[in-house]
């Protein structure tokens, strides 16, 4: 069974699940690529691949000021662990580490780091890509994109904006006429 470490140690608020050679976590701190790499490096691994997903400054040319991620943490950690375990096994990896950031993320900062190590490069490249795609499809984590005039939930499934983030004091009638249908379908995120 996985060891669950909540609010573990030091000054970090990182929540993680881990097994030998598999580590997944959620944190509201800035992500550190060196830490992710060092978690997976091994004398058995000739290849280490690191994917860093970074926040973009626009959506359909509209200026994004910052992003904010929220999660159903216990469920998202379980899902990340299940994906990491499956990718680790199917690509015969040496080690895998997945960390997603939560809370406000400024433009150009990393929102996810996936590090994988394998004896040879082909497996590492493929595993990294497969892991990212599965995380984007399944992990119970949500991105709000904030524009100059408010926030909007994003959906990876259809590339559309979802229900707007209602600001304090805004009339609830606002719900009726905004559903993001103006967005181009099929748009890729991150």
């Amino acid at each position: 069974m996985a060891d669950e470490v909540e609010n573990s140690g030091q000054t970090t608020d990182e929540q993680s699940l881990s097994e030998p050679n598999i580590y997944v976590s959620l944190t509201s701190n800035p992500l550190d690529s060196t830490t992710a790499l060092s978690r997976v490096k091994s004398s058995k691994a000739g290849a280490v691949v690191l994917f860093a997903g970074c926040t973009r400054d626009n959506f359909n040319s509209k200026t994004v000021t910052h992003l904010s991620y929220s999660a159903y943490a216990p469920l998202a950690l379980r899902t990340l662990l299940s994906i990491a375990r499956s990718v680790h096994s199917s690509h015969s990896l040496v080690s895998i580490s997945v960390t997603h950031r939560l809370g406000r993320v400024d433009i150009g900062e990393e929102s996810i780091l996936i590090a994988v190590s394998a004896p040879h490069r082909a497996a590492a490249w493929r595993a990294g890509e497969e892991c990212l795609e599965r995380v984007k499809e399944k992990a119970e984590i949500w991105k709000e994109e904030w524009f100059e005039d408010g926030g909007m939930w994003r959906s990876n499934r259809d590339g559309q904006a979802g229900v707007p983030v209602v600001k304090e004091g805004q009339d609830s009638g606002e719900h009726a006429h905004v559903d993001g249908q103006q967005q181009a379908p099929g748009r890729e995120n991150a």
């Binding site: 999660a71 995380v135 399944k138 949500w142 959906s155």
Partner: peptide
């Protein structure tokens, strides 16, 4: 019980 809208990590 959790209500899980379409996810958008990454």
């Amino acid at each position: 019980v959790g209500i899980i809208p379409p996810v958008s990590s990454g």
